[in-house]
Write a protein that binds this DNA or RNA. Structure first.
Lengths: 158, 158
DNA sequence: CTTTTGGTTCTGAATTAAAAGAACCAAATT
DNA sequence: AATTTGGTTCTTTTAATTCAGAACCAAAAG
């Protein structure tokens, strides 16, 4: 059981509310938040369970999906049977890109819609074309933005 | 009741699945999709209800939140008591920016976390700083990207 | 080979979200 | 003034999530 200071508890609360609003299940959100604020960055299954006061089953499924989604990594220490779990901060960048790409993939459907629409509704179709062009533009620009970031930072991160 | 071609029905299906996955309630998603594919771009309350085969209450609440979120605009035609509803394609751009800003607003919390963390976990804190810097960077770049787009297009859209 | 540890998996219960149905209401029509 | 139209709002029902508790299981320890 991890002892948490009041500020830490408060942030876990705020952070998990934020993530739940964004569609994440509560237990997952609270685990992620805990792993961000706790003084030790690698916590065991049972430490997480006790600290968040949650059932083993809930923690187990939540951790497994978090690992699957590359939000958390699981670490094994030789000579210790327990698994330890750590927030995958390093992957934030890549996860963000994946998320944005998924958002932008709506363009595929918009193009399909355009190809199926009447040609009668000229203004509407023009607006639709603009949206499609905008998303294509965003996609291209984002590639550059990510590239620019990586160029600036992969040197130092060696 | 609007007659829809098979391709239109199929796209409504695909598009609403996409949006529901992104967290939108099903009825809202299907209304938006219908307004994107239907040959007439302005549909009355009852046309929507009949076409989607949904209850008045569900359509009413869904339409109201869609209007509130600037996803749909409601139009009144003089001499016609009905309200007509139209997809606000023009706002896609602004809505996208709002959505991204909300996503990036997590940085506020991350900064708070950093300020509360032990200084002992040097590597972890450095990773956290990197994430924060990355999100700040993204925020700045996105402003430019949106600006660039608007510069190129607000001339022609007069 | 029995027990303990560190979990996982499988119900079921409780909560939550979404939709339906009915009652309602104001403006327009008859 | 009664009725119809075009919705809105409230209550109930239904469906989907989420979690807890118990049974279970494999690997390690005794």
């Amino acid at each position: 059981m991890i002892e948490l200071r009041p500020e830490q508890l408060e942030i876990i609360q705020k952070m998990s509310v934020f993530q739940v609003r964004a569609g994440m299940p509560p237990t997952e959100a609270r685990i992620l938040a805990l792993l961000l604020v706790s003084d030790r960055t690698e916590l065991s299954f049972d430490e997480i369970r006790e600290t968040l006061n949650t059932s083993k089953s809930a923690v187990s499924t939540a951790l497994n999906t978090l690992v699957l989604r590359n939000k958390v990594e699981s670490i094994t220490i030789p000579g210790d049977r327990k698994r330890y779990f750590k927030h995958q901060l390093r992957n934030w960048n890549a996860n963000a890109k994946d998320g944005l790409d998924k958002l932008l993939s709506v363009n595929q459907l918009l193009k399909e819609i355009l190809s199926v629409r009447t040609t009668e509704t000229v203004d509407f179709n023009q607006d639709l074309k603009n949206v499609i062009a905008f998303i294509d533009f965003m996609q291209g620009e984002l590639v550059h933005v990510f590239q620019k970031w990586n160029d600036q930072h992969q040197i130092e991160n060696n």
